[in-house]
Design a protein around this nucleic acid. Structure first.
Length: 500
RNA sequence: GGGCGGGUAACAAAGUGGCUAUGUGGCGGACUGCAGAUCCGCCUACGAGGGUUCAAAUCCCUCCCCGCCCUCCA
């Protein structure tokens, strides 16, 4: 009933009860926009998309905020290299990155606050931190004093003494302690600059998330998340900043997404194995990619490979065939609900199967969003449904409609069966003319050359050939249709086609 | 060195005291002109060694491996 979430703060699964009943406020660390969105981003944002969808499935209203980091060392470096204004540069990539995620079929967050537009909030928070004695000014820079904040390390499980041993001390640094981090950086040539009480400069790396999440969601919002790599130091610092400034507990639940590897290797620039979403979508269907990410438990590191995608693609076919099978059986359904009294014994059993499936799905998702288990319940339902339909040829349409509804509702949480987000490779008119050409070859014509009608006519032509035991022709037609993207199946009740 | 997470059948991946996970792949069968789909059956599973228990992949102990973070990262 209640969702349990593994909370990085407590290192156990805690019962999730939102601050405001029926409302879930979540903040997820977004992209630093200086290059195209890659599959690491895809992994994380698909994971949160599923989480968000499940909260909605449970009847919650979700307010999902994902920041855009558009003021950052790497952006500045990249922009300066090309002689472009850094803010203009990041603006360009913001659109590109979000479009990439759109193409993947990841639903957009409700709000994408940008660092560059939240400077006043950040300055305000830095002032509070200084006022409360946790920050200090040093020649136009402002630093956070880690040692003055006794809870420092509570999120990542680090302790200050141990960290000090491995801390790097950079020359020319004005930090009192090597672990201290910058809240505000004094202006340097070639960098974007904003005025501040400490002189012109720009915000440090971590302050944007503390400031924006607190100002938009209030300090004690429900869920804060991001990739596992952000746990330390980024999120640790966020907690320190926000709690030092507000004196209140910051985000209540912290969720960290397992990082993707590629063929067993860490994805990194130095290895040169970064794959962009855009490139991948050239070769793979968005749904396959989403399913690959959704199928991995969010805290585990999935290993990306072509083989893995192929396996997922096959599994997806199975899900799609079931959807079609259910739709077929549900065609004549009235708006009525299936009631026990109108059902035959096997149908009553199937009604129970549907109920069990939904219960299992929810139990899996309630348990820290156990998507592998949720998928298992989905596939199990497919198996049981197939078995039912094999034995029971004319099932109650309302019953099947009900099964379909449950099937679609649960699947869509896992991002399956979403409307296609890209244009198909072949245009409809091309397919029509190809089908027409094929039909003429077998001396047939039809009045209204729709795809449906053409396929029907071709299947009839093929059926004639089969009757005459002209299997060469029959196989030929099947092969040609296959190449046009139509799968032909000969069943006991005649030949049927489906789009691949 | 400090922190965190792993090692499950051919591959991927859940499970965490007794109950077929699941997906992909392989083999055999039913159906079929063939193919496909679907169904049925099968393919030495729990890193190693001890222990607790009526019962351990699951709890305890010892050991061996692997990954990630501690520097920018989703």
């Amino acid at each position: 009933m209640t969702v349990h979430i593994y909370n990085t703060l407590t290192r156990k699964k805690d019962a999730f009860i939102p601050v405001e009943t029926g409302k879930v406020k979540m903040y997820v660390c977004g992209m630093t926009v200086y290059s195209d969105a890659h599959i690491g981003h895809a992994r994380t944002y698909v994971a949160f998309d599923v989480i968000r969808r499940y909260f909605e499935y449970k009847g919650n209203t979700v307010f999902y905020v994902q920041n855009i980091t558009d003021v950052d060392d790497k952006i500045i470096a990249a922009a300066n290299k090309q002689g472009i204004d850094p803010l203009l540069y990041s603006q360009r990539f913001t659109d590109r990155c979000l479009t990439d995620l759109d193409a993947l079929g990841v639903r957009r967050a409700d709000l994408y606050p940008k660092a560059s537009e939240a400077i006043p909030e950040m300055i305000h928070m830095i002032e509070q931190i200084i006022q409360n004695g946790y920050g200090y000014v040093a020649d136009g820079d402002v630093y956070f004093s880690v040692e003055s904040f006794s809870d420092y390390g509570k999120l990542s499980g680090q302790n200050i003494a141990e960290m000090k041993k491995s801390a790097r001390i950079e020359p020319g640094d004005l930090k009192r302690n090597p672990l201290d981090f910058a809240l505000w950086k004094k202006a340097k040539p070639g960098e974007p600059v904003w005025p501040s009480p400490w002189g012109p400069g720009r915000p440090g790396w971590h302050i944007e998330c503390s400031a924006m999440s607190c100002s938009i969601l209030g300090p004690a919002f429900d869920i804060h998340g991001g990739g596992m790599d952000l746990q330390f130091p980024h999120h640790e610092n966020e907690v320190a900043q926000a709690e030092a400034a507000t004196g209140q507990q910051f985000a209540r639940f912290w969720m960290h997404i397992g990082l993707l590897t590629i063929n067993g290797e860490k994805m990194s620039k130095s290895i040169g194995n970064i794959i962009n979403i855009k490139d991948l979508l050239q070769r793979w269907d968005a749904e396959v990619l989403r399913m690959f990410f959704a199928q991995a438990h969010y805290r585990s590191p999935p290993d990306f490979s072509e083989k893995a995608l192929t396996d997922v693609e096959k599994g997806r076919e199975r899900l799609h065939r079931m959807k079609e099978r259910l739709q077929e059986h549900a065609k004549k359904a009235s708006a009525e609900k299936p009631t026990d009294s109108k059902l035959q014994e096997p149908e009553k059993q199937y009604l129970l199967t549907i109920k069990d499936f939904q219960d299992e799905f929810e139990a899996a998702m309630d348990d820290d969003f156990n998507t592998p288990k949720a998928f298992a319940s989905l596939f199990e339902f497919v198996n049981k449904s197939n078995r039912f339909f094999e034995q029971y040829l004319n099932p109650n349409p309302e019953l099947c409609k009900h099964a379909l509804d449950v099937y679609l509702k649960t699947s869509s949480v896992l991002t399956v069966f979403q409307p296609p987000t890209h244009t198909p490779l072949k245009k409809e008119s091309d397919i029509t003319s190809a089908l027409q050409a094929l039909l003429q070859k077998y001396d047939k014509t039809i009045d209204t050359p729709t795809i449906d009608a053409l396929l029907q006519a071709l299947l009839e032509a093929r059926q004639d050939a089969r009757k005459e035991k002209d299997y060469k022709t029959a196989d030929d037609i099947r092969k040609k249709l296959e190449s046009l993207g139509f799968e032909i199946q000969d069943t006991t009740r005649g030949s049927v086609w489906r789009k691949k």
